[in-house]
């Protein structure tokens, strides 16, 4: 190789190396995102089955049915899911309140009367949250951190479910309100 062609060959080799690096990186990222979406699809299937079981069950009180509908509506919104993810990361905004206490009492009652349905309720909440996290691009980036925080803090706590239900957009066409609020 002559000295005249060497710079051109070197430049071409550098450009080729850059392109190849970019290709490998893009291959990794797109493959990871596709796998995340596949897991989200699987989780949504489980979530839909659990939601259907809860809504069709006679042993589940209305409070929990409204809660699960509100929660499922809320996690269909990307902004709400992102806000919940940031709440989990920061650890703020998940304080219990009066409604949380009602829901907690209903869950304890359900666990005593129908433990299997209480397990299904927990499954619907967890799969719904994970599927929503993996569904959207903005929250899929935070998934690992949020899932670790969720696993560490969720076990007996339903505070985030109630918080998510409150963050649900009120302009949705099918708003499920409590009977007292509807009559007021």
């Amino acid at each position: 190789m002559s000295s005249e062609t060497f710079p051109a060959v070197l430049a071409g080799a550098l450009i080729t190396f850059g392109l190849w690096t970019q290709r490998v990186r893009r291959f990794d990222s797109s493959g990871r995102r596709r796998r995340q979406l596949q897991r989200a699809e699987l989780l949504y299937r489980t979530h839909s089955g659990a939601v259907e079981s809860i809504l069709e069950s006679e042993s589940v009180p209305d409070v929990l049915k409204r809660m699960i509908i509100n929660f499922s509506d809320a996690i269909a919104n990307e902004d709400v899911v992102e806000a919940i993810a940031k709440m989990f990361i920061s650890g703020a905004g998940l304080d219990p309140n009066q409604e949380d206490g009602d829901v907690r009492e209903a869950i304890h009652k359900l666990a005593r009367q129908d433990p299997e349905m209480a397990y299904v309720l927990c499954q619907a909440i967890i799969t719904g949250m994970h599927a929503a996290m993996l569904r959207f691009d903005a929250t899929a980036i935070l998934y690992e951190e949020v899932s670790a925080k969720m696993a560490a803090s969720l076990a007996p706590d339903v505070g985030f479910v109630v918080t998510a239900s409150r963050m649900r957009k009120s302009e949705l066409p099918f708003l499920v309100r409590s009977p007292a609020a509807a009559l007021a």
Binding site: L37, A40, E41, Y44, R45, S48, S72, A76, A131, R135
Partner: peptide
């Protein structure tokens, strides 16, 4: 995934 969400 959107299709599964619509089923819900």
């Amino acid at each position: 995934v959107d299709q599964e969400a619509m089923k819900v």
